[in-house]
Design a protein around this nucleic acid. Structure first.
Lengths: 242, 242
DNA sequence: CGGAATGTTGATATGCCTCAACTAAAGTGG
DNA sequence: CCACTTTAGTTGAGGCATATCAACATTCCG
């Protein structure tokens, strides 16, 4: 499978592309890069000249705090485009790192812009992708600001599981999540002790579990319900033709 | 002044547009709409056929919670485009309402898409605008998840003040903010009592105050410092003097 | 096998929520 | 213009969720 196929598959989830668009995307050249767990792909302040698609593994975006700590902002799985924003924002306002082993494929901005000019539909599809990103950020605001501890954790799990499933990355009701409890805390704005206690709650109610870097969803309906999760904001249906 | 001029001014802050682009934008037709305080402009679930620029006043985006409460997601001032995402996301995942009196100018999606096809640079500029939006959401995640109460409030004030200033909406060190303490609480994920206490703290330290629907910034440097505010994430290429 | 990282659990401290009472300000009708 | 009503702001008391800290268990990995 060509690296760009992962992207193509994703775009097709929500956008109509004609055969010319598809051919143009498949013709894009890209630079493959493998990352070790925790390694940064780009850092806050960088001025990237390319944008990358996740090929394998998981990648996270995060803010670095004044005290050196982190606030994780989003997780990205195969097919995602964690730094598409770099296309039009000169400087990175956050960093991107690998969570577990990960590999990406970086495409030069100049090639992409050229493609968007020649084939507006491709640009609109990628634009839509960045808008879905924004919708996910909005939901994270709501999650971290107005839900109880367990609900927050359950919602975080729900979204990741749903998105993994949409990208065909779920096997045996489980998906990749090589995050430790500290990192979950840095995502949800809670201490490690609290993460642990809420995680136990989810285990006890047999909704979900986290083991050896994988999220196991024992009872999807219950998990979604605890997390007050509704997938509407992920805009997963094929959108209208433009 | 033409309604589209407000938008034009904003786009020029970060994007280069040639005279053809500018002329094309100025040729856009738009439907003017005035809103009473609190009135919704669009609701979660709607499928808008147009996108609107804020002409006057202030507008807010919010999620409606299961219990009927609200989580405010962002504030928008004159020149902002609170629902540009509707261009490529069929269904609204949140609502937009007026905060105080506000007026908007709605442009049909079809006209915009046509313009983006004819003049990619305009599309890229608007795209960039939506990417800055996303950066603001990211910062809100960090703000609401990992800063102390006072810092959270101070950061919220700082951002609004900085953005208002960038749009020439600051007079006498004050800018519009017709929000009551309850609404601030629904923005920052804190109770009204806590908002009040932190607000008093900011008053006491003479950093900022909130009176009759306006935010008064008494000591900008101190406010920014308390709020750990740095404007980098706003990607204002032309950073104005305050 | 030993050391490091991660997970687990309890005790204590604290920031914030909830509730309730009260005050001040803004709007309304006579 | 004043009396009345409503809304917003203010403040204290009590309780709860979560942070913090510390000790220990477990798993991972060279």
């Amino acid at each position: 499978m060509k690296p760009t196929d992962a992207l193509l598959k994703k775009l097709k989830h929500h956008s109509h592309l004609d055969s010319g668009d598809i051919a143009a995307i498949r013709k894009l050249g890209c630079r493959f890069e493998a990352l070790l767990p925790g390694a940064d792909f780009i850092r806050q302040g960088d001025k990237p000249k390319e944008s990358a698609i996740v090929i394998e593994g998981m990648v996270a975006r995060y803010h670095t705090l004044k005290n050196g700590g982190r606030q994780y902002l989003s997780l990205h799985i195969a097919g995602d485009w964690p730094d598409a924003q770099g296309l039009f924002l000169e400087q990175m306002d956050h960093s991107v790192c690998a969570v577990g082993n990960a590999s990406l494929c970086a495409i030069p901005h100049s090639d992409l812009i050229k493609l968007f000019r020649a084939r507006p539909a491709v640009g609109f599809a990628v634009w839509r992708e960045t808008l879905i990103d924004a919708a996910i950020f909005r939901e994270a605001i709501t999650n971290n600001s107005s839900r109880t501890g367990v609900a927050r954790l359950a919602h975080f799990f729900s979204e990741l599981f749903f998105r993994s499933n949409a990208n065909d990355l779920v096997t045996n009701n489980s998906c990749l999540l090589p995050f430790n409890q500290t990192q979950i805390g840095e995502t949800l704005g809670m201490s490690i002790a609290t993460v642990h206690r809420h995680l136990q709650e989810l285990r006890k109610t047999k909704a979900a579990d986290l083991r050896s870097g994988r999220l196991i969803v024992t009872d999807r309906v219950r998990l979604f319900s605890i997390g007050d999760f509704s997938s509407q904001y992920l805009h997963a249906r094929v959108q209208r033709r433009i």
